[in-house]
């Protein structure tokens, strides 16, 4: 595409990013407002952060959410990587179409339907609702995202490397462990991060899968936001936005470096 700096492009980019970021900036600024009224500025204060840290209901919910997210994203990464491997490498097998359908369907399924279906399953098999059921539900819908991310990496990498390892006497498992896994590792890690964020973020599926004693943070936020804007929620949002921002920037720096390193390695390998 031609590179031309035009005022039109500059304006549309500026307006677009102002639209994307202004609401969050306002949210962050007003988390430091000393007034209970969220829309009237009354001076700087960090008291809402203090109140947030003393709010046991929020802390408990945060703990449940974190537990669910770590467990489900780890399970989802294992299952999703396996699924990606099967999709890309296992060749033809009976029921492959159904398999790929089941991997792609959850990506476009409305959350209300996935949540409802999950809950009805848990009730049908008599599983008590709680952390376990949220983990199962989150694993199922996030593993599909992991497998999409990992399979796009598996498709592009040179399969002859694996074959070489096998020819040189590796068992298939060794070949996977010492050749395939290191190559797809960045994709596996970003898959895990994606699954983790999706799980942290999910309200609808968790509302269906959760029992009375297992409220997640988004559920807690949702129920208090329904009553209106509150500075405590602003403080909580600010904390979550900063964690994500730091995380994304770090991840992108790391991946930039690892891509550069990989290129250098490949070039070195070509030269020798």
């Amino acid at each position: 595409m031609n590179r031309k700096f035009t005022w039109f492009n500059a304006t549309s980019l500026t307006l677009g990013f102002v639209f994307l970021y202004l609401p969050m900036i306002i949210l962050v600024i007003f988390s430091f407002n000393s007034s209970k009224l969220v829309t009237v500025w009354a001076g700087f204060s960090t008291k809402w952060y203090g109140e947030l840290l003393q709010n046991d209901a929020f802390l408990n919910a945060a703990w449940v959410t974190l537990k669910v997210a770590v467990l489900s994203s780890t399970l989802a990464t294992i299952l999703g990587t396996l699924a990606a491997y099967v999709m890309v490498r296992a060749g033809r097998f009976r029921g492959r179409t159904l398999f790929s359908g089941m991997i792609y369907a959850p990506l476009v399924m409305p959350e209300v339907i996935t949540g409802l279906a999950m809950l009805l399953l848990f009730i049908a098999i008599g599983l008590d609702r709680g952390v376990t059921t949220i983990v199962l539900a989150h694993t199922t819908f996030t593993m599909c995202y992991v497998s999409v991310v990992v399979s796009s990496r598996l498709v592009t990498f040179d399969q002859s490397l694996e074959e070489a390892a096998l020819d040189l006497g590796c068992t298939p498992f060794d070949a996977f462990k010492s050749v395939t896994l290191p190559i797809i590792a960045p994709a596996v890690i970003s898959g895990w991060l994606l699954a983790f964020t999706l799980s942290l973020d999910d309200l609808v599926i968790a509302s269906f899968a959760a029992g009375p004693s297992s409220t997640t943070l988004p559920m807690k936020i949702f129920s208090s936001v329904r009553l209106g804007v509150s500075p405590e929620i602003n403080a909580l949002s600010t904390l979550m936005i900063s964690i994500v921002t730091v995380g994304v920037i770090t991840a992108s720096l790391i991946s930039k470096r690892s891509i550069a390193k990989q290129r250098a390695d490949e070039q070195a390998a070509v030269r020798t």
């Binding site: 990013f17 306002i26 949210l27 829309t39 936001v225 209106g228 949002s237 921002t245 994304v248 920037i249």
Partner: peptide, 26 residues
């Protein structure tokens, strides 16, 4: 990265941010 960043931020929070903007006293 600026386009992707909001995608990683909580959906719920991004919707919530608009309540304070659009309300009658917003």
């Amino acid at each position: 990265m600026l386009v992707i960043l909001p995608f990683w931020t909580s959906f719920l929070i991004r919707v919530y941010a608009w309540i304070g903007i659009l309300s009658n006293e917003g």
